[in-house]
Design a protein around this nucleic acid. Structure first.
Lengths: 253, 253
DNA sequence: AATTTTTTTGACCATTTGGTCAGGTTTTTT
DNA sequence: AAAAAACCTGACCAAATGGTCAAAAAAATT
């Protein structure tokens, strides 16, 4: 936390007594170990994720991000150059956590377990970083101009690779016949819809917003859907125990 | 802005010879039967759908729509007042075709047929009006500020109504146990993903863009997915014959 | 302590954009 | 044909926005 303060980003009105946002600034260390850049970039990216998710690239103003990050606008430009640069940096961050889940599809695994783990991973991402999902969705809807190369190389390769695994499972009779590629599209669609279209889901469910339980229901539904589609046995009853260890992970994002 | 377009949008430079958008104006009828307004509004809405879909609300400029519609910007304001007004008009148009497909879920129907028809309807919409789907998706992702009321009333009511039908099917043993609401979310997700995320799908499939065959494949996959999920028999083999009668319908929208 | 490097920030600017308007043209009505 | 209504549009704003910059404050290095 930079010492800054409430940082009235405009000029003008700032009553002397209200500028003390953090308690006892004087006690904080006078400097960090040269990690200023990293800390600030992270702070900005976090703010940017929220703002870009809500307003899209064009709807987002640098000023809005600056306010969300509690930093002057010029500071963002100091770290990321341009709005586009910041956006790209953010996209990279989001994409990183995207293909990792594919690792669950190993040839020697039990298909049912692989799918179950994959779905749970995806839904965990949906729950923990819905904003990131929205930023990505927005980018794709608007033509994927900044990530098309990534889609056509890294993502496609990864999908093709895992499609073979699934095709082999089908061939060896371990699961019902399903088009692997379209299966992936379906998996992405049904999991990410709870992040991207959360407002719609909540509206239809008559909830003010989606809660943990709603997403657990969704996860169970999706597990059923996938396993049935693949002609696999519906494994664990799926209720409480498995959702345990989530604390400990800082979720301040 | 993206386009480097010709069409000098400022004043100043405009070569005389490029201002002729439609060929042979002199041959057109000198007047229409008082349908000028309707025709122009339609023309503008059609252009707006494409532009809003590609750029989102904030990324869209009235100038861009004007160029797409081949009309001066002031003309749009004449018909729709504000950008917001035009956007709302467009959303209404899109929403109209949204809940109609629900009609397939009639208590006395065979579940398998109802689901199949619903999926085909949805996929037809995806194929014929992908832009409309994107406009809607964009609106929801960004908080559904203009349609939240619609979601919480008309859509919710309609879904609840049909959820009962499905629940009854389940109770009477006509289909496997499935959460009706989440089933709808899944249906929407897997069908609309081929419109909203078409770029991603195309990239993964290594196609320059999605073709008719790709969407047919997708439809068949989704039919399998849905029927298996609901424990229903996979009806027709699904190949050629059923996709026949699509001509005759004007699809210029 | 002096020096160099990094970070911070208010003020400023060029461009873009939604929206207006007055005057003109076309179509419909009388 | 005249009057009224509807439609068209170039020219013009005020506000918003991405980006710049120079000078100063902090931090790291010597």
């Amino acid at each position: 936390m930079p010492r800054g303060g409430a940082t009235a980003q405009k000029s003008g009105e700032e009553p002397q007594d209200q500028i003390r946002p953090l308690a006892d600034v004087s006690a904080l260390p006078r400097s960090n170990g040269g990690r200023t850049r990293q800390l600030n970039e992270d702070r900005i990216l976090r703010a940017a994720e929220a703002v870009f998710a809500e307003a899209g690239f064009n709807g987002t103003t640098m000023q809005a991000i600056a306010e969300a990050a509690r930093l002057p606008k010029a500071n963002l430009h100091y770290y990321f150059g341009t709005k586009e640069g910041l956006y790209r940096a953010l996209l990279n961050r989001v994409l990183d956590g995207w293909v990792d889940a594919f690792d669950h599809f190993q040839p020697d695994r039990e298909p049912a377990d692989a799918f179950a783990d994959y779905v749970r991973d995806k839904m965990r991402f949906t729950r923990q970083r819905p904003m990131a999902s929205k930023v990505f969705a927005n980018e794709i809807i608007h033509g994927a101009q900044h990530v098309s190369h990534y889609l056509k190389t890294k993502l496609r390769d990864r999908v093709d690779e895992k499609a073979v695994v699934i095709a082999d499972w089908v061939k060896s009779g371990k699961m019902a016949s399903v088009d692997p590629h379209h299966l992936f599209f379906s998996l992405w669609a049904v999991t990410q819809t709870y992040a991207d279209f959360d407002v719609q889901v909540a509206a239809v469910l008559a909830k003010p917003k989606l809660g943990r339980e709603d997403l657990d229901d969704a996860t169970n539904h999706i597990l059923r859907l996938v396993l049935r589609t693949c002609g696999l046995p519906e494994t664990r009853p799926e209720t409480g125990p498995e959702t345990g260890p989530e604390t400990g992970i800082e979720h301040h994002t």
